[in-house]
Design a binder for these strands. Structure first.
Lengths: 180, 180
DNA sequence: ACCTGAACACCGTTCAAGT
DNA sequence: ACCTGAACACCGTTCAAGT
């Protein structure tokens, strides 16, 4: 990639990170482009869809999450491992309002640029789920698909909390409830 | 209200009910107006904001829910009463995708046309919550605010399920988890 | 190779003009 | 009283024209 192109790409990502964080994941792409001092068409050449932009923003967190999943599976007891994964999931999804909805939509849509990343995420969670179920820490009538949606709902509620303590409390309550 | 005005109002409500159900609560108001055979400006004269339209659509379900809450409080044991209220809440919120988010936003915004209805709803749930807590059916470190958001999250996840059985299953799991 | 302005079809809001 | 077309400032998509 040419140096100026790389430069533009980086500035778009930075601007998107800021704008999505404050305005939510449905913020205007025109605003992102303005903030990055780039034409809207340039933004769309680098990231042909909103999901492509989200994917680039979430990739770091996602792959860290997948790697953590592998570590957790060998290092910790199954219940604690799943719990940690869930907390990481929520943290990932908390980067911007509305990103959870984008994820649950993307996992149903193979065309989405976010699809593969979400499927990977679901798989890494499903692995930990199975082990937790074998250890008796979670009810057995859940599969990876259910876990993905339940984790999404937990993250959604977490994101709705107004104060930091309320958010933390809501998260604790939901995690304890799920991992009864 | 003049007869033709009443007529237009009714057609708008019917069209909104259809469009929101299929396209979600963020669907184009222009589309709703077209479907109702009415100018967009006419729609906005009857319902000056999207929330006003949502409020009109949800009012029936909401007041039924509040009335049910009163009945439940005297008729049933506290745990079952709260459980029934939660199921009704989810059913209300299931009228269209995205309506839960509109509700949790509206309860924070006194300007919203949906605000009062959501506050009433929270109150009716909070009453049942207190009684369930006194009966030991729910943890005591939750208030009406928490319940409103938790119920919202349950409804959100419910709405994400793809098949009817999965949706029902997700709902059962979450209700059992909350009312441990 | 890469960027961009402009055209396009949409959106919600507002208001002067109609009956 | 009530309705509506039109103007406005926005949106995401597309593409011919520029360097």
């Amino acid at each position: 990639m040419r140096a100026d192109a790389r430069d533009n790409r980086d500035r778009v990502l930075e601007a998107a990170s800021d704008v999505f964080a404050t305005e939510g994941a449905n913020a205007s792409l025109r605003l992102v482009a303005r903030e990055a001092d780039v034409g809207l068409a340039t933004l769309l050449r680098h990231f042909p869809s909103r999901d492509a932009l989200l994917e680039a923003l979430l990739r770091t967190g996602f792959s860290r999450l997948a790697a953590r999943g592998d570590e957790l599976r060998v290092a910790q007891d199954p219940r604690a491992a799943l719990l940690t994964w869930l907390r990481d999931f929520v943290e990932c999804a908390d980067t911007s309002r509305g990103v959870v909805a984008a994820m649950t939509a993307a996992i149903e849509d193979p065309q989405s640029a976010l699809h593969a990343a979400c499927v990977e995420m679901r798989t890494s969670g499903a692995d930990l789920l199975v082990r937790a179920q074998e250890a008796g820490a979670v009810r057995r009538d859940l599969d990876g698909n259910d876990l993905f949606l339940l984790a999404g709902g937990i993250a959604w509620t977490y994101g709705q909390g107004r104060t930091t303590p309320q958010r933390a409390h809501l998260l604790d309550v939901q995690l304890e409830a799920l991992l009864s």
